[in-house]
Amino acid sequence: MTLTQAAPDELEAHFEATLARHERIEPRDWMPEGYRRTLVRQIAQHAHSEIIGMQPEGNWITRAPSLRRKAILLAKVQDEAGHGLYLYSAAETLGVSRLELTELLLAGKQKYSSIFNYPTLSYADVGTIGWLVDGAAICNQVPLCRTSYGPYGRAMIRVCKEESFHQRQGYELLATMMRGTDEQRAMVQESVDRFWWPALMMFGPPDDASPNTAQSMAWGIKRHTNDELRQKFVDMSVPQAEALGVTLPDPALAWNEERGHYDFGQPDWEEFMEGVRGNGPCNAQRMAHRRRAHEDGAWVREAATAYAAQVRDAVS
């Protein structure tokens, strides 16, 4: 309901004032087109990441080592689907349709996080993904609970509550294996060796190569820089690795008394960029699987639509 027609600069000033008061922007508020587009990209691709993110672990559901682990993994993968749906729901409040976002993913025009283009080669990877990959996601997502766009922040609050279960089940899985045989301990170490660097890449390239961070921070969409988040993750992970009894595969990793933080090496950014360009280890496989699942589900969607129409006709 528009009761007044305000001038554009007045709208912009009002938008800025809302941000300055640290209040949330809500769906029917006026917002700059750049703000809206940045949010659509961020939220939609976050949603795609959750949906594609079901694949690496879903791979292991039928081969879980016990009924307990199977129930946990099923619940976790179902949560990832749920996270994707909360996020699509938030993206739709910005005036895009769900189908359109799905098409953009399937066409490869919108991306998802490159972390899901790495293969899961052993069951230990289920634990490592929970501990490191979901741990890194928590570092990114906790500040997003206070992001300036209301529906995004609310979706993140729900996601973060559930993500804590994901990280803990992963860590517990690894801790159980570390109390097992030498072979199991070796599996954990091998898995951590493969996932440590990709987990660091999840925070994106270094700040000096991210010229648009300032705009996103001014809009309250982004709360910390990529490097700040990465440092936080490393500081959190080192004592966790020690308690677990695994070695993080970085010779440069050392406590820096002066900074009060751990120093650490840089991941291979060329490998990261290859993944973004579509040339990571599993990009083609992940996309092919997603397309196939979408096409294979077409008859279910059509049947549900036909049934709904039938019931509606019978009532009227």
Partner: peptide, 24 residues
């Protein structure tokens, strides 16, 4: 440019279409 705030890992925030708001 890629931002960590893709949430579950960095995603590009430029050069990505945002949809037309049209029905598929």
């Amino acid at each position: 440019e890629l931002s960590a705030e893709g949430g579950h890992g960095a995603v590009p925030l430029q050069g990505v279409p945002t949809g037309q708001g049209v029905q598929a």
